[in-house]
Nucleic acid binder design. Structure first.
Lengths: 209, 209, 209, 209
DNA sequence: TCGTAATCGAGACGGTACGTCGTGTCTTGAG
DNA sequence: CTCAAGACACGACGTACCGTCTCGATTACGA
């Protein structure tokens, strides 16, 4: 996990004296949340009370690390994005775009990730401060990866240079994201990444052009 | 509003004996929720208790019509989609697609709709059954409108006929939707609909064509 | 039943026009309460809602006749005292006192009466106006019967004339009443009336006198 | 107060881990009930909600100690019987009987006790299990005190030895109790205890003896 | 080797909301 | 005007969580 939210995370808060924080506690809590979400526990049924109970941890201990349920959820969300992003070939922009989308598709398919994404994102979304924080770290990084690939593609003549990369990123990312967040897993079939990228590259207007 | 949730809405439930339900109650409740959301009341502060109190309605009366907060939110959500969809010119597919997206953009800009969309969607999203219900009514209708326009465009040679309309719909809709749900209002500038449609039509690959 | 409480009872209220009251309704309600009490339904579980439901009667109809649960209970209570009191021999005062107490004992034994007495009295007790009303009708009549017998006994030299009949009535009645109201049915054995009366007559101080 | 009801009272429940119960809470609640009853608050107006609010205590905290309103009332009732019973002279049985009854009379006169007795007894009475519990503790103790005095009186020839002490206890206690519970305070005049005891000792039959 | 100090699990605490039920009133259509 | 049915505003019920607060026990660091 990166740096936790407000109270600082599992490690000791600084150079204090006294019993140091047990790093295992932070892990146990986040793992418990993930486990419960995998077991189809609704986010609405996910009370701090229950999380602490199932993690075998005191409630105060949880609040010592996170300011509230949403702050905890933010860290849960971030824990998913710790895995290294996709390796980019550095070859054609088309292949890199496919790789980036394929990464999103695979994450949407993984039971763990998908459960979290589908429910937790909705929760964090409703807390402006936390959403901003999530956006600034995870989302921004993802967009910047796209941005970089797109700019390189423009430079190398593979992508039209007269287009806004912000808009382009949305055109590529949002179809995959919307399926991962709002649809069934069955709507993330193999080859989807390629189809999205290629359709966008070719355009929807027929041949004749 | 279409047919309400489970307990059936403001109208009489089935039998006809006894005092009939007061249709004004259903309206008052939904209007109250919309008002509170416009007043920047957090979803967390939106208790059934408060809704009933501010609507001047008994709590039991609310529960007589909706099974819970989320079911109520579903109807609130549906109430937003009652407004007539966009008039389609029946002219070029391109113009109809723009019209459909422009409708979404305008709704995302409207204070009322936007506040509700951002928060209520999050609530309904966490309840699979309700989300499915929302999807089956509102979302499906929207997708079918796109589907119809796309098929007509294919028939008339304006759209490539070798593409899956499901995927195409996602390509057109999700960029606009994702901005409405996840970004700031400032990211729904005028002309966005045209830019999305035209970029998709032309394709992202440069020149040669 | 004597005259009901406030709204006047089962008969039509006076010389009104319109559909006359159904006398069967009043009966049905009181019978239903008695039946439920016999079935060991606590008085706390006895809601107006349930009474009306089980009597197959509209709630408003009940409220048209009684001002509330306690007023209804008062009438239920009174319905028990409609049975003719004990036949007094007019012979010795001792035998009449025994007869009066024996009547109370038998009523305390009867399942129906006992259930009502044990629970309903407690309820009515907490409503000063209703208690006064009950006292003025049922209780006063009982005390006056004792009073008459005692005065006759005094006149005929069977009872000490230097005692207050109010106090004497309490001495005779309250032991039986307290067992009927607060103890088990098993504590109302045959012969209890005689033992109370005779002990009181003889006195508790030993022989020597 | 003796041992509270079911959940056990103000003290810790069993285990020893966790924050111990605050003894002040139990006291505050019972005192609040007594205060409200003294302020002529009807038993119907005595909601758990209000008790908790006025005691400045969380509702859950009340329910942690008492299973319901009636169980709480039982403890309120018991709190009245904590005051030391009357000092018995150990002299004549007659004087001890007077002292015991005089104690009951005074309690019936005290505003606090009287208000509680009249209303709380009614509540507890309607719950067989709680009434039994009250009976087994408070009432039994009172009866045993009478029983002891009576047996001593019998042994010393002051009381007829051929009588059942159970019945005798009822003969002495119930007249005073019935006035305390069912009559006005004015019917507990000074000297009442003596009159009851002496009348019972002498007997009601005149002269001849 | 001792405090001193922050940690831990446990669980009580004052609140607030939950969803249900009962109260007494009302509003239907039928008689 | 009555009736059964049942909706209505209100408010209490008993439960569950929230975030805070003690407890006793544990575990480091600095004196």
């Amino acid at each position: 996990m990166s740096e936790p939210t407000a109270m600082t995370g599992p490690g000791a808060p600084a150079g204090r004296r006294g019993r140091p924080r047990d790093a295992a506690v932070g892990t146990a809590v986040i793992e418990t949340v993930l486990r419960l979400l995998e077991e189809d526990v609704t986010v609405a049924e996910l009370s701090m009370e229950r999380i602490a109970r199932e993690a075998g941890v005191g409630k105060a201990t949880v609040y010592r690390r996170w300011a509230g349920k949403e702050a905890l959820m933010l860290d849960v969300l971030r824990s998913l994005d710790e895995e290294a992003g996709p390796r980019l070939t550095g070859g054609s922009a088309r292949d890199d775009l496919v790789a980036l989308l394929e990464f999103l598709r695979r994450r949407g398919l993984a039971k763990r990730s998908s459960a979290v994404l589908r429910t937790v994102v909705a929760q964090v979304r409703t807390h402006p401060r936390l959403w901003a924080e999530y956006h600034d770290t995870v989302v921004r990084a993802r967009r910047e990866a796209f941005d970089a690939v797109l700019r390189r593609g423009m430079a190398e003549g593979e992508i039209r240079a007269d287009l806004d990369t912000e808009l382009l990123t949305d055109l590529f990312v949002s179809p995959m994201l919307s399926r991962a967040l709002f649809h069934e897993r069955s709507e993330l079939p193999e080859g989807l990444a390629e189809r999205i990228v290629d359709t966008l590259l070719e355009g929807v207007r027929p041949a004749a052009r």
